[in-house]
Write a protein that binds this DNA or RNA. Structure first.
Lengths: 203, 203
DNA sequence: ACCTGAACACCGTTCAAGT
DNA sequence: ACCTGAACACCGTTCAAGT
Protein backbone atom coordinates (compact mmCIF):
# COMPACT_ATOMS: atom_id res chain seq x y z
CA UNK A 1 0.00 0.00 0.00
CA UNK A 2 1.42 3.40 -0.96
CA UNK A 3 1.57 6.51 1.17
CA UNK A 4 -1.97 7.70 1.83
CA UNK A 5 -3.12 11.04 0.47
CA UNK A 6 -3.59 12.63 3.91
CA UNK A 7 -0.88 12.74 6.57
CA UNK A 8 -1.74 10.09 9.14
CA UNK A 9 0.58 11.17 11.92
CA UNK A 10 2.07 14.16 13.71
CA UNK A 11 3.63 14.65 17.14
CA UNK A 12 0.32 16.10 18.33
CA UNK A 13 -1.72 13.18 17.06
CA UNK A 14 0.67 10.69 18.65
CA UNK A 15 0.67 12.58 21.95
CA UNK A 16 -3.11 12.68 21.97
CA UNK A 17 -3.36 8.95 21.34
CA UNK A 18 -0.85 8.28 24.13
CA UNK A 19 -2.90 10.36 26.58
CA UNK A 20 -6.03 8.43 25.60
CA UNK A 21 -4.23 5.16 26.14
CA UNK A 22 -2.95 6.16 29.57
CA UNK A 23 -6.37 7.48 30.56
CA UNK A 24 -7.92 4.14 29.66
CA UNK A 25 -5.27 1.61 30.66
CA UNK A 26 -2.75 3.44 32.83
CA UNK A 27 0.11 3.00 30.37
CA UNK A 28 1.01 3.02 26.69
CA UNK A 29 3.23 1.05 24.33
CA UNK A 30 4.50 1.83 20.88
CA UNK A 31 2.63 -1.07 19.24
CA UNK A 32 -0.50 -0.10 21.15
CA UNK A 33 -0.22 3.47 19.92
CA UNK A 34 0.37 2.32 16.37
CA UNK A 35 -2.70 0.10 16.49
CA UNK A 36 -4.80 2.98 17.79
CA UNK A 37 -3.62 5.13 14.88
CA UNK A 38 -3.96 2.40 12.20
CA UNK A 39 -0.28 2.47 11.48
CA UNK A 40 2.84 0.31 11.94
CA UNK A 41 5.01 0.92 15.02
CA UNK A 42 8.00 1.99 12.96
CA UNK A 43 5.97 4.80 11.44
CA UNK A 44 5.88 6.59 14.78
CA UNK A 45 9.63 7.19 14.58
CA UNK A 46 9.16 9.57 11.67
CA UNK A 47 7.54 12.00 14.10
CA UNK A 48 8.95 11.36 17.55
CA UNK A 49 12.39 10.25 18.66
CA UNK A 50 10.99 7.52 20.88
CA UNK A 51 8.89 6.63 23.86
CA UNK A 52 10.66 9.02 26.22
CA UNK A 53 9.90 11.97 23.98
CA UNK A 54 6.21 11.07 23.92
CA UNK A 55 6.21 11.21 27.71
CA UNK A 56 7.80 14.66 27.56
CA UNK A 57 5.24 15.80 25.00
CA UNK A 58 2.46 14.64 27.29
CA UNK A 59 4.02 16.55 30.16
CA UNK A 60 4.33 19.67 28.02
CA UNK A 61 0.70 19.40 26.88
CA UNK A 62 -0.46 19.12 30.47
CA UNK A 63 1.71 22.03 31.62
CA UNK A 64 0.52 24.18 28.72
CA UNK A 65 -3.03 23.79 30.01
CA UNK A 66 -2.20 25.70 33.17
CA UNK A 67 -3.74 29.17 33.22
CA UNK A 68 -1.42 31.54 35.11
CA UNK A 69 -3.42 34.70 34.52
CA UNK A 70 -4.92 34.79 37.99
CA UNK A 71 -4.35 38.39 39.07
CA UNK A 72 -6.86 38.51 41.89
CA UNK A 73 -6.27 40.01 45.29
CA UNK A 74 -3.38 39.35 47.63
CA UNK A 75 -0.23 37.35 47.02
CA UNK A 76 -1.57 34.43 49.08
CA UNK A 77 -4.77 34.32 47.06
CA UNK A 78 -2.67 34.27 43.90
CA UNK A 79 -0.56 31.38 45.23
CA UNK A 80 -3.71 29.49 46.19
CA UNK A 81 -5.22 30.07 42.76
CA UNK A 82 -2.04 28.95 40.98
CA UNK A 83 -1.70 25.80 43.08
CA UNK A 84 -5.35 24.92 42.50
CA UNK A 85 -5.00 25.51 38.78
CA UNK A 86 -1.81 23.39 38.72
CA UNK A 87 -3.56 20.55 40.47
CA UNK A 88 -6.69 20.87 38.33
CA UNK A 89 -4.52 20.37 35.28
CA UNK A 90 -3.02 17.19 36.74
CA UNK A 91 -6.46 16.00 37.78
CA UNK A 92 -7.71 15.99 34.20
CA UNK A 93 -5.46 12.99 33.50
CA UNK A 94 -4.48 11.52 36.85
CA UNK A 95 -2.99 8.34 35.46
CA UNK A 96 -0.37 10.30 33.55
CA UNK A 97 1.32 11.45 36.73
CA UNK A 98 3.22 8.27 37.61
CA UNK A 99 4.80 8.38 34.16
CA UNK A 100 6.19 11.84 34.92
CA UNK A 101 7.92 10.87 38.14
CA UNK A 102 10.51 8.68 36.46
CA UNK A 103 12.34 11.56 34.83
CA UNK A 104 12.92 15.02 36.17
CA UNK A 105 11.03 17.92 34.72
CA UNK A 106 13.08 19.52 32.00
CA UNK A 107 12.75 23.18 32.76
CA UNK A 108 11.13 25.31 30.12
CA UNK A 109 7.77 23.63 30.13
CA UNK A 110 6.80 25.21 33.43
CA UNK A 111 8.28 28.69 33.16
CA UNK A 112 4.94 30.39 33.25
CA UNK A 113 3.83 28.72 36.44
CA UNK A 114 7.15 29.13 38.23
CA UNK A 115 7.47 32.75 37.19
CA UNK A 116 3.98 33.52 38.48
CA UNK A 117 4.67 31.79 41.79
CA UNK A 118 8.01 33.57 42.16
CA UNK A 119 6.35 36.90 41.50
CA UNK A 120 3.65 36.23 44.08
CA UNK A 121 6.08 35.18 46.80
CA UNK A 122 8.37 38.07 46.01
CA UNK A 123 5.43 40.47 46.19
CA UNK A 124 4.47 38.92 49.51
CA UNK A 125 7.86 39.83 50.95
CA UNK A 126 9.70 36.51 50.85
CA UNK A 127 13.43 36.69 50.28
CA UNK A 128 14.81 34.95 47.17
CA UNK A 129 15.99 31.86 49.08
CA UNK A 130 12.64 31.51 50.81
CA UNK A 131 10.87 32.03 47.50
CA UNK A 132 12.69 29.07 45.97
CA UNK A 133 11.80 26.90 48.95
CA UNK A 134 8.20 28.09 48.92
CA UNK A 135 7.87 27.21 45.23
CA UNK A 136 9.38 23.80 45.91
CA UNK A 137 6.96 23.29 48.79
CA UNK A 138 3.94 24.10 46.64
CA UNK A 139 5.28 21.92 43.83
CA UNK A 140 5.89 18.96 46.14
CA UNK A 141 2.48 19.23 47.73
CA UNK A 142 0.62 19.51 44.43
CA UNK A 143 2.50 16.59 42.90
CA UNK A 144 1.95 14.43 45.97
CA UNK A 145 -1.74 15.32 46.01
CA UNK A 146 -2.07 14.51 42.34
CA UNK A 147 -0.53 11.08 42.93
CA UNK A 148 -3.03 10.57 45.74
CA UNK A 149 -5.75 11.28 43.20
CA UNK A 150 -4.38 8.69 40.80
CA UNK A 151 -4.47 6.02 43.49
CA UNK A 152 -7.37 3.58 43.26
CA UNK A 153 -9.66 3.06 46.22
CA UNK A 154 -7.67 2.52 49.37
CA UNK A 155 -8.42 -0.93 50.69
CA UNK A 156 -7.86 -0.21 54.34
CA UNK A 157 -9.36 -3.43 55.60
CA UNK A 158 -9.89 -2.02 59.10
CA UNK A 159 -8.16 -4.89 60.81
CA UNK A 160 -7.02 -5.12 64.38
CA UNK A 161 -3.73 -3.33 63.64
CA UNK A 162 -5.62 -0.08 63.14
CA UNK A 163 -5.90 2.00 66.30
CA UNK A 164 -9.00 3.89 67.36
CA UNK A 165 -7.91 7.29 66.11
CA UNK A 166 -7.21 5.86 62.66
CA UNK A 167 -10.44 3.84 62.64
CA UNK A 168 -12.46 6.97 63.36
CA UNK A 169 -10.60 8.86 60.64
CA UNK A 170 -11.13 6.11 58.08
CA UNK A 171 -14.84 5.92 58.88
CA UNK A 172 -15.21 9.43 57.43
CA UNK A 173 -13.50 8.54 54.16
CA UNK A 174 -15.54 8.90 51.01
CA UNK A 175 -14.65 7.68 47.54
CA UNK A 176 -12.13 9.13 45.15
CA UNK A 177 -11.98 11.65 43.63
CA UNK A 178 -14.14 13.36 46.29
CA UNK A 179 -11.89 12.25 49.15
CA UNK A 180 -8.73 13.36 47.38
CA UNK A 181 -10.35 16.68 46.44
CA UNK A 182 -11.40 17.37 50.02
CA UNK A 183 -7.95 16.43 51.31
CA UNK A 184 -6.33 18.76 48.79
CA UNK A 185 -8.54 21.66 49.83
CA UNK A 186 -7.72 21.03 53.47
CA UNK A 187 -4.01 20.87 52.65
CA UNK A 188 -4.23 24.07 50.63
CA UNK A 189 -5.69 25.93 53.61
CA UNK A 190 -2.91 24.51 55.79
CA UNK A 191 -0.23 25.47 53.29
CA UNK A 192 -1.43 29.02 52.70
CA UNK A 193 -1.92 29.84 56.37
CA UNK A 194 1.49 28.32 57.09
CA UNK A 195 3.12 30.41 54.38
CA UNK A 196 1.50 33.58 55.69
CA UNK A 197 2.84 32.72 59.12
CA UNK A 198 6.42 32.61 57.79
CA UNK A 199 6.44 36.31 57.02
CA UNK A 200 7.91 38.57 59.72
CA UNK A 201 5.02 41.01 59.30
CA UNK A 202 2.49 38.31 59.94
CA UNK A 203 2.70 38.16 63.71
CA UNK B 1 25.55 -28.18 37.56
CA UNK B 2 23.44 -29.56 40.42
CA UNK B 3 21.80 -27.59 43.17
CA UNK B 4 24.48 -25.94 45.26
CA UNK B 5 24.90 -26.88 48.93
CA UNK B 6 23.89 -23.49 50.27
CA UNK B 7 20.64 -21.74 49.37
CA UNK B 8 21.49 -19.05 46.87
CA UNK B 9 18.26 -17.05 47.01
CA UNK B 10 15.50 -15.82 49.27
CA UNK B 11 12.94 -13.01 49.00
CA UNK B 12 15.19 -10.89 51.23
CA UNK B 13 18.30 -11.51 49.13
CA UNK B 14 16.41 -10.68 45.93
CA UNK B 15 14.90 -7.54 47.44
CA UNK B 16 18.31 -6.39 48.61
CA UNK B 17 19.82 -6.92 45.17
CA UNK B 18 16.95 -4.99 43.58
CA UNK B 19 17.51 -2.06 45.93
CA UNK B 20 21.21 -2.06 45.07
CA UNK B 21 20.40 -2.08 41.37
CA UNK B 22 17.96 0.83 41.67
CA UNK B 23 20.41 2.78 43.82
CA UNK B 24 23.06 2.38 41.14
CA UNK B 25 21.12 2.56 37.89
CA UNK B 26 17.65 3.87 38.74
CA UNK B 27 15.89 0.68 37.72
CA UNK B 28 16.11 -3.10 37.81
CA UNK B 29 15.35 -6.01 35.49
CA UNK B 30 14.93 -9.68 36.19
CA UNK B 31 17.96 -10.68 34.09
CA UNK B 32 19.98 -7.93 35.76
CA UNK B 33 19.02 -9.20 39.20
CA UNK B 34 19.83 -12.76 38.22
CA UNK B 35 23.26 -11.73 36.99
CA UNK B 36 23.95 -9.86 40.21
CA UNK B 37 23.07 -13.00 42.19
CA UNK B 38 24.95 -15.43 39.92
CA UNK B 39 21.78 -17.23 38.99
CA UNK B 40 19.47 -17.70 35.99
CA UNK B 41 16.43 -15.42 35.68
CA UNK B 42 13.97 -18.27 36.02
CA UNK B 43 15.40 -19.13 39.44
CA UNK B 44 14.00 -15.92 40.86
CA UNK B 45 10.45 -17.23 40.38
CA UNK B 46 11.00 -19.87 43.04
CA UNK B 47 11.05 -17.07 45.62
CA UNK B 48 8.98 -14.20 44.30
CA UNK B 49 5.86 -14.15 42.15
CA UNK B 50 7.33 -11.62 39.75
CA UNK B 51 8.66 -8.15 39.25
CA UNK B 52 5.65 -6.44 40.82
CA UNK B 53 6.11 -8.34 44.06
CA UNK B 54 9.74 -7.31 44.25
CA UNK B 55 8.64 -3.68 44.05
CA UNK B 56 6.19 -4.29 46.90
CA UNK B 57 8.91 -5.98 48.94
CA UNK B 58 11.15 -2.96 48.43
CA UNK B 59 8.34 -0.68 49.55
CA UNK B 60 7.74 -2.81 52.64
CA UNK B 61 11.44 -2.84 53.51
CA UNK B 62 11.57 0.94 53.25
CA UNK B 63 8.41 1.40 55.29
CA UNK B 64 9.67 -1.00 57.95
CA UNK B 65 12.65 1.28 58.46
CA UNK B 66 10.44 4.06 59.78
CA UNK B 67 10.79 4.55 63.52
CA UNK B 68 7.44 5.68 64.94
CA UNK B 69 8.49 5.71 68.60
CA UNK B 70 8.87 9.48 68.79
CA UNK B 71 6.97 10.34 71.96
CA UNK B 72 8.41 13.77 72.54
CA UNK B 73 6.45 16.84 73.53
CA UNK B 74 3.35 18.23 71.87
CA UNK B 75 1.25 16.71 69.10
CA UNK B 76 2.76 19.07 66.53
CA UNK B 77 6.29 18.08 67.50
CA UNK B 78 5.28 14.45 67.15
CA UNK B 79 3.85 15.08 63.67
CA UNK B 80 7.01 16.94 62.67
CA UNK B 81 9.19 14.11 63.96
CA UNK B 82 7.12 11.46 62.15
CA UNK B 83 7.16 13.37 58.86
CA UNK B 84 10.91 13.89 59.10
CA UNK B 85 11.46 10.23 59.89
CA UNK B 86 9.21 9.24 56.99
CA UNK B 87 11.14 11.43 54.62
CA UNK B 88 14.52 10.30 56.00
CA UNK B 89 13.55 6.76 55.17
CA UNK B 90 12.72 7.69 51.58
CA UNK B 91 15.91 9.71 51.32
CA UNK B 92 18.07 6.66 51.99
CA UNK B 93 17.09 5.32 48.55
CA UNK B 94 15.70 8.23 46.55
CA UNK B 95 15.70 6.44 43.24
CA UNK B 96 13.25 3.86 44.53
CA UNK B 97 10.47 6.38 44.87
CA UNK B 98 9.42 6.67 41.21
CA UNK B 99 8.92 2.90 41.19
CA UNK B 100 6.42 3.22 44.01
CA UNK B 101 4.22 5.79 42.31
CA UNK B 102 2.97 3.42 39.63
CA UNK B 103 0.92 1.31 42.01
CA UNK B 104 -1.00 2.43 45.04
CA UNK B 105 0.26 1.57 48.47
CA UNK B 106 -1.35 -1.62 49.65
CA UNK B 107 -2.33 -0.82 53.20
CA UNK B 108 -0.72 -2.84 55.89
CA UNK B 109 2.84 -1.82 55.24
CA UNK B 110 2.30 1.60 56.74
CA UNK B 111 -0.01 0.94 59.65
CA UNK B 112 2.51 2.01 62.23
CA UNK B 113 3.11 5.39 60.66
CA UNK B 114 -0.54 6.13 59.94
CA UNK B 115 -1.62 5.04 63.41
CA UNK B 116 0.97 7.29 65.02
CA UNK B 117 -0.07 10.25 62.88
CA UNK B 118 -3.76 9.62 63.60
CA UNK B 119 -3.06 9.48 67.32
CA UNK B 120 -1.11 12.73 67.21
CA UNK B 121 -3.79 14.63 65.27
CA UNK B 122 -6.53 13.19 67.46
CA UNK B 123 -4.61 14.23 70.57
CA UNK B 124 -4.22 17.68 69.07
CA UNK B 125 -7.97 18.06 68.84
CA UNK B 126 -8.64 17.41 65.16
CA UNK B 127 -11.92 15.74 64.32
CA UNK B 128 -11.77 12.38 62.53
CA UNK B 129 -12.47 13.85 59.09
CA UNK B 130 -9.80 16.49 59.54
CA UNK B 131 -7.40 13.87 60.85
CA UNK B 132 -7.75 11.86 57.65
CA UNK B 133 -7.14 14.97 55.56
CA UNK B 134 -4.21 15.99 57.71
CA UNK B 135 -2.59 12.57 57.30
CA UNK B 136 -3.14 12.78 53.55
CA UNK B 137 -1.61 16.25 53.49
CA UNK B 138 1.52 15.10 55.31
CA UNK B 139 1.74 12.02 53.11
CA UNK B 140 1.41 14.04 49.90
CA UNK B 141 3.99 16.58 50.99
CA UNK B 142 6.54 13.97 52.08
CA UNK B 143 6.12 11.96 48.88
CA UNK B 144 6.40 15.04 46.71
CA UNK B 145 9.48 16.18 48.60
CA UNK B 146 11.06 12.76 48.25
CA UNK B 147 10.52 12.88 44.50
CA UNK B 148 12.14 16.29 44.46
CA UNK B 149 15.13 14.68 46.14
CA UNK B 150 15.34 11.98 43.48
CA UNK B 151 15.45 14.58 40.72
CA UNK B 152 18.88 15.24 39.23
CA UNK B 153 20.27 18.76 39.12
CA UNK B 154 17.71 21.18 37.79
CA UNK B 155 19.02 22.65 34.55
CA UNK B 156 17.28 25.95 34.78
CA UNK B 157 19.23 27.58 32.02
CA UNK B 158 18.32 31.09 33.19
CA UNK B 159 17.10 32.21 29.80
CA UNK B 160 15.14 35.31 28.95
CA UNK B 161 11.82 33.61 29.78
CA UNK B 162 12.71 33.69 33.47
CA UNK B 163 11.45 36.78 35.26
CA UNK B 164 13.43 38.72 37.85
CA UNK B 165 11.78 37.20 40.90
CA UNK B 166 12.54 33.70 39.64
CA UNK B 167 16.10 34.65 38.63
CA UNK B 168 16.80 35.92 42.14
CA UNK B 169 15.31 32.78 43.65
CA UNK B 170 17.35 30.49 41.40
CA UNK B 171 20.55 32.36 42.20
CA UNK B 172 20.26 31.10 45.79
CA UNK B 173 19.91 27.47 44.75
CA UNK B 174 22.55 25.04 45.95
CA UNK B 175 23.10 21.49 44.83
CA UNK B 176 21.05 18.44 45.71
CA UNK B 177 20.59 16.94 48.21
CA UNK B 178 21.28 20.12 50.21
CA UNK B 179 18.76 22.19 48.26
CA UNK B 180 16.04 19.56 48.60
CA UNK B 181 16.79 19.15 52.31
CA UNK B 182 16.52 22.88 52.94
CA UNK B 183 13.30 23.08 50.96
CA UNK B 184 11.86 20.20 52.94
CA UNK B 185 12.70 21.83 56.24
CA UNK B 186 11.11 25.08 55.08
CA UNK B 187 8.02 23.19 53.95
CA UNK B 188 7.83 21.33 57.25
CA UNK B 189 7.75 24.60 59.17
CA UNK B 190 5.03 25.87 56.85
CA UNK B 191 3.02 22.69 57.22
CA UNK B 192 3.22 22.48 61.00
CA UNK B 193 2.38 26.12 61.60
CA UNK B 194 -0.47 25.81 59.12
CA UNK B 195 -1.82 22.73 60.90
CA UNK B 196 -1.65 24.47 64.25
CA UNK B 197 -3.59 27.36 62.75
CA UNK B 198 -6.45 25.02 61.73
CA UNK B 199 -7.34 24.29 65.36
CA UNK B 200 -10.10 26.46 66.86
CA UNK B 201 -8.06 26.90 70.03
CA UNK B 202 -5.10 28.24 68.10
CA UNK B 203 -6.35 31.78 67.56
C1' DA C 1 13.04 -27.85 47.43
C1' DC C 2 15.11 -25.21 44.06
C1' DC C 3 18.18 -24.22 40.02
C1' DT C 4 18.39 -24.75 34.92
C1' DG C 5 17.54 -24.46 29.86
C1' DA C 6 14.49 -23.71 26.44
C1' DA C 7 10.69 -21.46 24.92
C1' DC C 8 7.03 -17.79 24.24
C1' DA C 9 4.87 -13.42 23.76
C1' DC C 10 5.96 -8.83 23.90
C1' DC C 11 8.45 -4.41 23.73
C1' DG C 12 11.46 -0.38 21.85
C1' DT C 13 14.17 0.78 18.09
C1' DT C 14 16.69 0.69 13.53
C1' DC C 15 16.96 0.78 8.71
C1' DA C 16 16.76 -0.36 3.89
C1' DA C 17 13.06 -0.41 0.64
C1' DG C 18 9.26 1.43 -1.27
C1' DT C 19 6.16 5.44 -3.25
C1' DA D 1 8.35 13.14 3.11
C1' DC D 2 6.69 9.31 5.33
C1' DC D 3 4.77 4.54 5.75
C1' DT D 4 6.23 -0.37 5.63
C1' DG D 5 8.38 -4.95 6.60
C1' DA D 6 11.94 -7.29 8.45
C1' DA D 7 15.16 -7.60 11.84
C1' DC D 8 17.56 -7.17 16.45
C1' DA D 9 18.35 -6.99 21.31
C1' DC D 10 15.93 -7.20 25.33
C1' DC D 11 12.40 -8.13 28.82
C1' DG D 12 8.99 -10.84 31.98
C1' DT D 13 7.28 -15.25 32.64
C1' DT D 14 6.31 -20.35 32.24
C1' DC D 15 7.43 -25.03 32.66
C1' DA D 16 9.33 -29.55 32.03
C1' DA D 17 13.64 -31.54 33.34
C1' DG D 18 17.09 -32.25 36.39
C1' DT D 19 19.21 -33.23 41.26
Amino acid sequence: MPRPPQRLLSPEIITEAAIESVDETGDFTMPGLAGRLKVRPSSLYNHVSGRAEIVEFMRARLMAGIDVTSQSGSWSETVAALASEYRRSYAEHPRLIPLFTAHTVQAGVAFGLYNALAQAFSDGGFEPGETLHAITTVDSFVLGSALDLAAPEVQWSSGPEVNNAMKAALATSGKNPERADAAFEFGMRVLISGLVAQLPTAH
